[in-house]
């Protein structure tokens, strides 16, 4: 028996395409966020509130990842921003090459902020770099306060945590302080916003953060 040494990363191909995407985004001065969550945490709703607030101030485009339908892309299209749908046909996450293909239908020079809504799944997307500047993880209060402990990889890789559906806190056994505490245990450098898409609480603070980061000149 002979041994052939390989020592290669399994996802090196995806990482390489992600690196190329990132270069492309830098060349065009686009700030890119990759939104991840369990299904139904409120990614599309937050995006809708964000578009309402920022679409006159910031040039925004959207890439929607979905397993089967283009319903989310249609929700977003109502706000008159360029939106591309990626249907993964059962695939549980977006990959860098799917994003690269989608970029073909966008005018990159006219975009300041690109929002990628990933497929609703807290496990798989954490492995696949898309070339984004930051991962934004959405955890809703209805999912309980131990979510970060169950899906540590996602909270570890994210830079921002949006705790959504805080309007429902009075009716739920979810403790906000515990939820935050659990998330910061996994990743002490998380920036946390508490939001509600119904009362719109916290949406402005989140949008200000987006403005600031989209307009920031890349460090050179």
């Amino acid at each position: 028996m002979s041994v052939i040494t390989i020592e290669r990363k399994v996802l090196e191909k995806n990482d390489e395409v992600a690196r190329q995407n990132r270069e492309l985004f830098a060349d065009h001065g686009i700030f890119v966020i990759n939104m991840v969550s369990s299904p139904g945490a409120g990614k599309t709703s937050i995006l809708e509130r964000t578009l309402e607030t920022l679409r006159d101030t910031l040039k925004i485009a959207v890439i929607e990842g979905d397993v089967q339908t283009d319903l989310d892309a249609r929700r977003v299209a109502k706000y008159n921003v360029p939106a591309v749908q990626i249907v993964t046909r059962g695939g549980c996450h977006l990959e860098a090459n799917l994003v690269r293909e989608a970029l073909g239908s966008l005018k990159l020079d006219t975009i300041e902020l690109l929002v990628i809504e990933n497929v609703g799944n807290l496990v798989c997307p954490s492995n696949y770099d898309l070339g984004e500047a930051v991962k934004v993880v959405v955890a809703s209060t209805t999912e309980g306060d131990d979510k970060p402990l169950k899906y540590p990889a996602m909270f570890r890789n994210a830079s921002v945590l949006l705790i959504n559906k805080i309007d429902l806190l009075p009716y739920l056994p979810c403790d906000l302080a515990t939820l935050k505490d659990n998330a910061l245990k996994i990743n002490p450098s998380l920036t946390v916003f508490e939001t509600s898409c119904t009362s719109k609480q916290g949406i402005n603070a989140w949008c200000e953060w987006l403005m600031e980061n989209s307009r920031r000149k890349p460090a050179s």
Partner: peptide, 26 residues
Amino acid sequence: GIALCPACGSADTDIVSGTELQVVSI
């Protein structure tokens, strides 16, 4: 995934292993 130091509780830590996904050899 828990980033706190199990020994002293500090959050000032680096991951040194546990994220690998590699083909080693055949």
